[in-house]
């Protein structure tokens, strides 16, 4: 496999072989996290800028740790204490940082397509860390890695994604990835939060969680993004919980060994009941650990060779 890409923008662009190659590469980084010295010198001398225009805990810390584990020099940028407040445009901000000779940008932005636009403009690597409701490729890759680790395969698995599909970049990236790896994907949520054209992506949509859960191998619960719910797309949090929370009784409809996943942060008591915290099928914290490994692999693949 020859991985020659400059950027990681989304799973829509990646081929099945490329996805497998990334997952296999990530596997080789697993050992490093369990060592006494959790750091290898492979990308010594490279500089990465983490540009987060939207709030983030997990993704940002995970990228920063992955970078440090590979001996990369890290610059962190957040708009609240930068010249963005003085009115500097994104393009100017990037060009100015680029003039400082950096090798890669990790970018999170609320406008879909921002990383794609910048990737064409600048010669260094761009990693999409979430662009609006469009894609969140490293999250989907770590989800695929987690599923494959637990189930040994992805092909033919029944995977259900539950929640606000319409506003979810995690759902979109996962649908691209899962369908490319030939999983059978279902989505479920209130009709107002399921895009009408979603079935064109090769998934089946359900409005009843009970129906959707029948016989699934993996359940991916999405966070109810309260900050994006301003248009009254469902009546109330309580009603959402009644219909779409993964209660113990509903969980029985899925396969006995079905994985419970969530990209975080979890609204405990909304999409997932507190009891799920102790459920042994819950792999949510495993996803977090795998996130570092996946991001190390991506950085290695993009920056670790002459292009």
């Amino acid at each position: 496999m020859d991985f020659k890409r400059k950027d990681l923008l989304g799973l829509e662009d990646l081929t099945r072989d490329e996805i497998f190659f990334i997952l296999d590469t990530a596997k080789s980084f697993e050992g490093i996290l369990n060592r006494r010295i959790k750091k290898v010198p492979i990308l010594r001398g490279k500089t990465v800028v983490n540009l987060f225009f939207e709030a983030s805990t997990r993704t940002r810390m995970s990228f920063e740790l992955a970078e440090k584990r590979l001996n990369i020099d890290v610059l962190n940028f957040s708009p609240s204490n930068s010249s963005v407040l003085k009115g500097e445009s994104l393009r100017d901000t990037i060009k100015n940082i680029l003039a400082m000779r950096v090798d890669c940008f990790v970018l999170r932005h609320s406008t879909p397509g921002t990383p794609h636009f910048l990737a064409k403009e600048i010669p260094v690597s761009i990693i999409n860390a979430g662009d609006g409701a469009h894609e969140h490729p490293t999250q989907a890759l770590l989800d695929l890695y987690t599923i494959r680790e637990a189930k040994g395969k992805i092909e033919d698995l029944r995977v259900l994604i539950v929640g606000d599909i319409a506003h979810s970049r995690v759902a979109r990236s996962n649908i691209w990835g899962l369908t490319k790896l030939r999983a059978k994907v279902r989505v479920c949520g209130p009709p107002t939060l399921i895009p009408p054209m979603i079935e064109q992506m090769g998934v089946k949509s359900y409005f009843s969680l009970e129906e959707a859960l029948q016989g699934v191998d993996v359940i991916m619960m999405l966070r109810l993004q309260r900050e994006r719910q301003t248009k009254g797309l469902f009546p109330s949090i309580n009603e959402y919980r009644d219909f779409f929370s993964l209660s113990e009784e509903k969980l029985k409809l899925a396969k006995e060994d079905a994985l419970i996943m969530h990209p975080g942060p979890v609204n405990w008591g909304v999409e997932l009941p507190f009891k799920i915290r102790e459920n042994r099928r819950n792999v949510i914290l495993g996803q977090v650990t795998n996130g570092i490994i996946i991001r190390m692999a991506i950085l290695y693949l993009l920056l670790g060779r002459r292009r």
Binding site: M1, D2, F3, T25, S28, G31, I32, V40, P41, I42, Y300, L301, G304, R305, R306, R307
Partner: peptide, 20 residues
């Protein structure tokens, strides 16, 4: 496996296979 410790990674045009 010494891949992560090589001194020529940015000079070669491929990704070496990382072994156990």
């Amino acid at each position: 496996d010494i891949t992560f410790y090589r001194d020529d990674l940015t000079r070669i045009g491929y990704h070496p296979v990382v072994r156990d």
